[in-house]
Design a protein around this nucleic acid. Structure first.
Lengths: 261, 261
DNA sequence: CGACCGATTGACACAGCTCAAATGAAGTGG
DNA sequence: CCACTTCATTTGAGCTGTGTCAATCGGTCG
């Protein structure tokens, strides 16, 4: 992980939801950052923390986990800044936790305030980021509230795949899955045992494979049908044929796997 | 409903989460608004709408209802502006629906842009509003994901009561409930039949009464215990003894009932 | 008075949970 | 390189909360 290029991940994410000018991208290059590495299930932020910097995820996955019951309320992929809202309210009501090993760039709150006041379009992009987050949360509610366990898991898989692809990862519908089945269970509000059975079901239906910490979606159409997945809510700008629509019929080159989601 | 005073509802809501100066409050008085009345289950906004104004709820309840399965993802009380986010992204992915009869003030997007650029503290207050919303959504996820039906319903009751109290309604832990048990079921992701059984259970436990479209919380302590309710996530400023903590031991004057939640 | 909508009740079915144990994979230290 | 530990996955069996279906009851409105 080249320290100097942390901002490019963020730029990828921003351009996935908003159109940015060269000047805007130039502003981003000024991003100061310190790199941090985290082990699986390690906590980046506790409820009692009052952070003065944000966590830009560079590699791996993060999630917000409720303090009491461990329920996962959202998952993040590289390019995301899970605690972006702390620039407004530095209070936390959950734990920011790593799912699998993760690499993070710490970015001072001040930086976001600066780019936001320097460029109206960047300010708007940050607002869009916040809006996309809320939209995701609503979708998560729908997932828990009105789908059975099979659809829930399928939906989460679809979402992760599309979000990874939006920042240039998960090519060939294949992505790293360093998280455990119990993590998945906490996200989908099912028991770990049942999570396992659901995955086996998905395997049996030949819609995905999950082996050696890698998930491969072998039948996107079937998976998204099971999940009732529609990617609109993610607010992505990719009007041109979203990658997942039509997976390349050719066999994926086995050498190239997204390393961190 | 005095047309001229729509802004005071919004002021109530804003001051419940942020401290505002007299100058800020003065700015709010300039709020232009047209009043609208809605029947139970009437739709204020459809997915295809591209609104140029926001809905400030004055009386009754509104909710966002998913287009496909009818799942309710959030509920609003007077003072709330459910579609505030449309000032940034005028796209919708759900239906804004009235729960019971509702009175709404339509406020042009421009007004929010104006106050936001005129006063940094109002801008911040609006941001806090957005943050509180996201916090609510996370809590809703936890409600659906890790509580049984009894706790879910209890939690929703607690939340509504506290939010009403934050804007000066639901005195004596009593508030209007013009919504149906099926509405409640859609919010808690349980079946209407089961919703009914849960309510009966709550009645049997003597923690609340629900009659003639009015809910009375008769034992707040028991209810919040069942619900595992902690109001922090609402982001309310009321540090001083939140009303629900200790309900007045005296019998509520039967004449005065909050008319609209 | 009839029609309609919401609340209520009962009987039954099943998705998903819990408990408990076995198996497998990965890392550690000798 | 092998014992040992630890953690994740897998499997089986029984239990239960909640859903579904279907009917009844009660209030409200035209």
């Amino acid at each position: 992980m080249q320290t100097g290029f942390a901002y490019t991940k963020f730029a990828d994410r921003l351009t996935s939801i908003a159109e940015l000018s060269d000047a805007d991208l130039e502003l981003l290059t000024a991003m100061p950052s310190a790199i941090g590495h985290f082990a699986p299930h390690e906590q980046l932020l506790r409820r009692s923390d009052r952070p003065t910097r944000c966590c830009l995820l560079l590699q791996g996955y993060l999630c917000w986990k409720d303090d009491n019951d461990g329920q996962i309320t959202s998952i993040y992929v590289p390019g995301d800044v899970p605690d972006l809202h702390t620039i407004v309210v530095p209070r936390l009501d959950a734990r920011l936790t790593a799912l699998g090993p993760a690499v993070v760039a710490f970015v001072p709150h001040a930086f976001f305030h600066e780019i936001s006041s320097s460029s109206p379009s960047l300010q708007r992009a940050l607002q869009l980021l916040g809006h996309a987050e809320a939209s995701c949360l609503r979708n998560w509610i729908i997932n828990l509230g009105s789908r059975d366990s099979l659809s829930r898991v399928a939906h989460l898989m679809c979402e992760i795949a599309v979000r990874l692809q939006a920042v240039g990862l998960a090519k060939d519908d294949r992505f790293a899955s360093p998280f455990t089945q119990s993590d998945l269970a906490l996200a989908c509000a099912i028991s770990p045992v049942h999570a396992n059975r659901v995955i086996q079901d998905l395997r049996r239906r030949q819609v995905l494979r999950w082996q050696s910490r890698t998930i491969t979606i072998s039948d996107w159409q079937a998976l998204s049908r099971i999940a009732c997945f529609e990617s609109d809510y993610l607010g992505l700008r990719t009007h041109a044929a979203p990658a997942p629509r039509r997976p390349p019929p050719s066999i994926a080159a086995p050498g190239e796997i997204a390393t961190a989601g």
